[in-house]
Write a protein that binds this DNA or RNA. Structure first.
Lengths: 362, 362
DNA sequence: ATTAGCACTCGGAAGACAAGAGTGCCAACA
DNA sequence: TGTTGGCACTCTTGTCTTCCGAGTGCTAAT
């Protein structure tokens, strides 16, 4: 439906534009791309690519610039899938190992890492999940102090130090600990009802309201662990992109990002596989992202949860490099966090790039 | 040494410049500041203020702009100390309460809050400290899994889930738990020597290297808790300041900030009191901050530790408002975290503003 | 000591101009 | 029919002038 040569030319335009951020002219293409024809021919082709909607010119007599549709075609078919060099992948693995010895809510570290690798702002999000309490312990410190320790089904452990104005004796603590371990484990947040709390309170013979304090912690921990959260870093890297030389534009996007990744809408529709998704310009739902692009990868965070790492940049983004890095990073995370059978260390997971080529384009 | 009227004029210049970010001319001052004299008189005074080094003009025939020295005088003597309105202080208290119900490493929240309040980028740092382990518990989950729980002398609690390829029986765990509680508490990081570990291992009759895993966690926790750490947020707010319209300039400062607050040098010399310190332009040691200003407040973080909250902005910064807010915030934190006798809730602590009027000025 | 008046200085905005890059189109050619 | 060289045309970008006005410094008068 679109000639092979046109594709080659389109690819050349996108490649060059990604590098230089300047509209690219016919002559440059004639020289760079090794198709043996002259700039005049290229011009004809370019004109057609414009009328097909893949390219546009900022003004008459300027070079061509890809439209979102053009990027889409590029991403889906044209760009050559990068695989990381050995050094790069080793570097990533090393950093992952260093950072994730113990993973708790290192979601921040993950986003930082992604941002450093790609040199774009990055965000990491945890998906909504349905973790339950797996174990509940109360450690007696002294008569006024104890520590609540909750282990969740997703293998994260939370704790809280409680300091009371009144004294509690150790046997009470022990009683509460085993009661909670018995009746608060394996259930979801909604199942912690006032009724359950009341009955536990009675069973423990607790007249000081201790039970509700502890129950509140349980609820809070569950809700916190299950609420999706986002972490953004490297916003400043936007500023090195020429399309954000306008401080207002940069500011708008950056404050949108800092305000938490409301990219969550995109996250919902995410499939289960280790795919990489690319959203180009107007394909984004969020108004603020309409002329930026987002690349998102998903990883297995264990316990049936999936996390996301995403990168935000101008539509003129180095999709191929970013996709490769993100994909590798996600695979590394899956391997470390995921429950199941992950591919072995060195392996690149295949790069499935999916994107809605919705009619929202252009 | 410097006439009263000059001071008034200087104050007027700084006030106006803080508001408008434009050089301010004699006429504007004559009208605004209620000193009954004409623009010509003001001009004479302005000329002298320039030769004294408090003001400068970007070029002949432009208004005047304060020099760092001018700001310094303004901050030390001239500016009127703001105290927050009732709504503002209530708002801050409410937010503090919401965020700090449980304070762990909410240092991030603190900086976020400071940034929101002041509308400048903010950073929070923990000082170097000498926390020790106060309590050590190991919770047995199953034969391959247990949870380490460490409570530090600064009342923070850390935990780690350990998953082993080999089986361990419960009595061993119990033995280790009490051994660690006995010999690893109350000591500093350096005191955890290979010797100590070896002897504990022997005492526990541990042939599987469990002891060293646990000891490693102890060391790591201590070192992490005692290493100063920084958290920055709201970098993007820089972009709304006209002096950072130049993206390169903005980028330089922002990436400096993101790279961790190397403002630590300034932190070292910080006194113990709840003072607020202002560093203007070249008074900063860091090259990148030479034409920005920093306002820092210190708070009592309990256990003989002090934390810092700082705000970064252009030299043309609303010192008075920022100082007031930061001071209030610091006081609120001290009250919640500090060990000792803190002033009661509603009270504004007195605003000590100190600053080196070092010879680095000019 | 203050003020009014005036000439002077600069920076910034607006316009004029040249250079250059890139296009579109046409006519010639394989 | 597809390709190519050539050429006129367009539009941006940078540079240079010009012009305006805000704001100054100075002087002479009060």
């Amino acid at each position: 439906m679109i000639s092979e040569r046109k594709k080659k030319i389109l690819a050349a335009v996108v490649d060059a534009y990604i590098r230089t951020a300047e509209p690219v002219g016919s002559k440059a293409i004639a020289e760079s791309a090794g198709l043996g024809c002259s700039s005049a021919t290229i011009r004809n082709e370019l004109a057609e690519l414009v009328s097909l909607g893949y390219l546009e010119q900022p003004h008459t007599s300027a070079g061509r610039v890809p439209t979102p549709l053009g990027y889409r075609l590029y991403v889906n078919e044209l760009m050559q899938r990068q695989k990381l060099s050995l050094e790069e992948s080793e570097d990533i693995n090393r950093r992952l190992n260093a950072k994730l010895q113990e993973l708790d809510d290192t979601i921040g570290d993950v986003s930082r890492l992604a941002s450093q690798l790609t040199d774009y702002p990055a965000l990491a999000l945890t998906a909504q999940s349905a973790a339950t309490i797996r174990r509940f312990d109360i450690i007696y410190v002294d008569a006024n102090t104890f520590i609540l320790v909750v282990m969740l089904s997703n293998n994260s452990v939370k704790n809280k130090l409680v300091h009371l104005p009144i004294s509690v004796d150790q046997s009470m603590i022990q009683r509460l600990s085993s009661l909670f371990n018995a009746s608060f484990t394996g259930i979801a947040e909604e199942q912690i009802t006032p009724l359950l709390i009341r009955s536990t309170e009675r069973a423990a013979d607790d007249t000081m309201g201790l039970t509700s304090v502890i129950a509140a912690f349980a609820i809070e921990t569950l809700s916190e662990a299950n609420t999706p959260s986002a972490f953004i870093s490297g916003e400043n890297r936007l500023l090195s992109q020429p399309e954000f030389r306008d401080p207002d534009k940069a500011h708008r996007l950056m404050s949108y990002l800092s305000g938490g990744g409301h990219i969550l809408p995109a996250a919902d529709s995410f499939g289960g596989t280790d795919e990489v998704r690319v959203l180009i310009g107007p394909e984004n739902v969020a108004e603020e992202l309409k002329d930026s692009s987002v690349v998102i990868a998903s990883y297995d965070a264990g316990d049936n949860m999936r996390g996301l790492i995403g990168v935000v940049g101008p539509t003129r983004m180095d999709y191929s490099a970013v996709a490769a890095k993100l994909s590798f990073l996600a695979a590394g995370l899956s391997r470390r966090l995921g429950g199941g059978e992950a591919p072995p260390e060195g392996m690149h997971n295949k790069l499935i790039i999916k994107g809605d080529i919705s009619d929202g384009s252009r």
